Amino acid sequence: MIRLKDVARQAGVSITTVSHVVNDTRRVAPDTLERVQRAIAELGYRPDSVARTLKSNRSHTIGMIVTTAHNPFFSEIIRGVEDHCFANGYSLVLCNADDVENKQLAYLQTLLDRRIDGLIVMTSRNGPAFLEALRRQGLPTILMDADPEPGQDVGVVNDDSPLGARLAIEHLLAQGFEDIALLTGPEDHPRSRERLAGALATLTAAGIDTPAERIVTTNLLAGGGFDAMQALLENRPRPQAVFAFNDLVAIGAIRAIHEWGMRIPDDLSVIGYDDIELARYLTPSLTTIHQPIYELGATAIAQLIERLEHGRPLDSIRSLAPRLVIRESVESRRHRDSDIGDTNLTG
């Protein structure tokens, strides 16, 4: 086993100097630093990470608990976190909790046993027991896709969901649609609640009442979007347009519409939310609300590392603005009606 004294002998310096280089505890002259790093590489020296953690009380490890890494939205968030961790010399330990509180609690304990320096939580449902456990630990924590939680060393990073919903509805209204169905998420999902509130407020401001049958709850997965769209299409009158609260729901809805032999956007327009990579490759490509997904993850971890490295307090709420991305799945109703009128006049 290669030890510090072996590196010191190879580099021709003291053990203390090697320790400063390895632990980054003091500036070392450039030529000395180069000799030590070369000796480390030649000998294949690897610091004892457990000993370093115990000595410095820092592991340079971040824990992250998510609902599931299989969802492309979460995958892009994770990539933003992981890239920033790697660039700053931190390791990331990822746990998929499936929004099950017992799993969240178990993974929290596992991460604490790993002596993580900070935590990012991106789950749709944070139960009281889990939140209480977080408060007891006092660990620097960023919550994502969640309601703000009071507590020391807790920050929140989200997209501005009410704004995103308003952009989606305003676009549909501008195309001449008034009968708009909303495919929402569960009532206890924070972002879904905000998107529903933003959508309904925008419709109300336009003088449009939305009946209860035009609001269909889904599980925010493609299968949920498919089932919700099937239910809408079984009843008459059918909506003119659909606002799905994420792109997976929109994808499921599009499949159902195709199975009914209807065309998008000719027979029914669809707008999604998130702008996952797949959205641009659908046929037709999906008009959607772009969340800065990668940036959300990068913003969360950047805040956390600033807190750990420089003591900067976490922002209680950091909100990133979404934007509308116009593609092919929404067609202007006014334009279509004009074409029909022109055909009737010349026919």
Rank of each mutant, 00 (worst) to 15 (best):
E259D: 14
L268H: 01
I251S: 06
N235F: 08
R238G: 05
I257Y: 03
V249Y: 05
A231N: 14
R280C: 05
A279G: 04
N235R: 15
Y281S: 12
D266V: 09
D274I: 04
F245D: 00
F243H: 08
Q230Y: 12
V249E: 06
A244H: 10
I257A: 11
E277C: 09
A279S: 10
A241E: 02
P239V: 11
N246E: 08
I276S: 07
I257H: 01
L233G: 07
I251Y: 04
F243P: 05
L232S: 00
V249M: 08
D275N: 15
A253R: 06
A231I: 08
D227H: 14
A241N: 08
R280A: 14
R236V: 11
F245S: 01
A279D: 00
D274E: 10
A241T: 00
R263S: 11
I276W: 03
R263G: 08
V270N: 00
W260H: 12
E259V: 10
E259S: 12
E259C: 09
S269T: 00
I276Y: 01
R263L: 10
L248A: 12
R280H: 04
I276F: 01
L248H: 00
R236P: 06
I254K: 05
A253K: 09
R238L: 10
I264K: 03
D247K: 07
R280S: 13
R236N: 13
V270M: 02
L268Y: 04
V270T: 06
P239F: 09
D266F: 05
R280W: 05
L278T: 10
P239T: 11
W260T: 12
A256V: 08
T283D: 11
F226S: 11
H258D: 12
D274S: 06
N235S: 14
R263F: 01
T283V: 14
A279L: 02
G252Y: 10
F245Y: 03
